[in-house]
C-alpha cells in the first residue's frame, strides 16, 4: 500500500550495475505481482559526443527525487520504488539513471515508472552538458518534457 512503499533514492558519481540492482529490487518487493524497471543510457551519435557532464544541486537533488517518489507512492498503490541517478562525467553507452517500481498490479507499476521519469526530467536539479569535437554545450530543456507533466 502507498503508506508503506519502500522508497530508495541514490545520487552518485559511481557507475551502477543495472542487472544487480534489478536482481536486488525484486526480492525486496516482497509479495508484489509486478515489477517495472527503466534504464537510461547516454546516447551518442558516432563521433558527435565525447562525453556528458552532469551537474546537480547536492541536497536539493535528493530531496526533490524523494518528493517525486513520495508523490508516486501517494498516487499509486506501490510496494517499492528505487531511483538511481548519476552525476559527473559519463561517456556514450554508460547507464545514467534507472527507476524501478513494484506494485500488486502492472498498471500501477508502469504508470508510476513513467510518472517518475517525466518528473525526474524536469523537476530534479540536474543539468547536462555535452562535450564533443566542436566544443561544449548545455543541453536545453525540451518543451515536450515540460508538456509531458501535463498528463499527470
Amino acid at each position: 500500500m502507498a503508506a508503506t512503499a519502500a522508497v530508495r533514492v541514490r545520487v552518485q558519481a559511481a557507475p551502477f550495475d543495472y542487472g544487480a540492482e534489478c536482481g536486488g529490487f525484486v526480492p525486496a518487493s516482497g509479495a508484489s505481482g509486478a515489477v517495472v524497471s527503466f534504464l537510461g543510457i547516454v546516447r551518442g551519435a558516432a563521433g558527435r559526443l565525447a562525453r556528458m557532464e552532469i551537474e546537480h544541486y547536492p541536497g536539493m537533488t535528493e530531496k526533490a527525487i524523494a518528493a517525486i517518489a513520495g508523490e508516486a507512492a501517494r498516487r499509486w498503490s506501490l510496494d517499492a520504488v528505487l531511483v538511481i541517478h548519476r552525476h559527473g562525467a559519463l561517456v556514450p553507452g554508460e547507464p545514467i539513471m534507472m527507476v524501478a517500481t513494484a506494485a500488486p498490479h502492472r498498471a500501477a507499476a508502469f504508470e508510476a515508472a513513467e510518472f517518475l521519469m517525466d518528473y525526474l526530467k524536469s523537476r530534479a536539479p540536474f543539468w547536462k552538458k555535452e562535450i564533443g569535437p566542436d566544443g561544449a554545450e548545455w543541453v536545453a530543456a525540451a518543451e515536450r518534457d515540460e508538456a509531458a507533466l501535463g498528463r499527470w
Binding site: 537510461g40 536539493m60 541517478h85 521519469m117 526530467k121 524536469s122 523537476r123 536539479p125 540536474f126 543539468w127
Partner: peptide
C-alpha cells in the same frame, strides 16, 4: 531553501537561494 519557487516569492527567513536553467535530468 532547496524548494522550487517563483520570482515573486518573498525572501524573509530564506537562507539559501539558487538560480539555474530549466533542469535536464533523466
Amino acid at each position: 531553501d532547496q524548494e522550487l519557487a517563483d520570482f515573486s516569492a518573498p525572501l524573509a527567513g530564506v537562507r539559501e537561494v539558487a538560480f539555474f536553467p530549466p533542469m535536464t535530468g533523466g
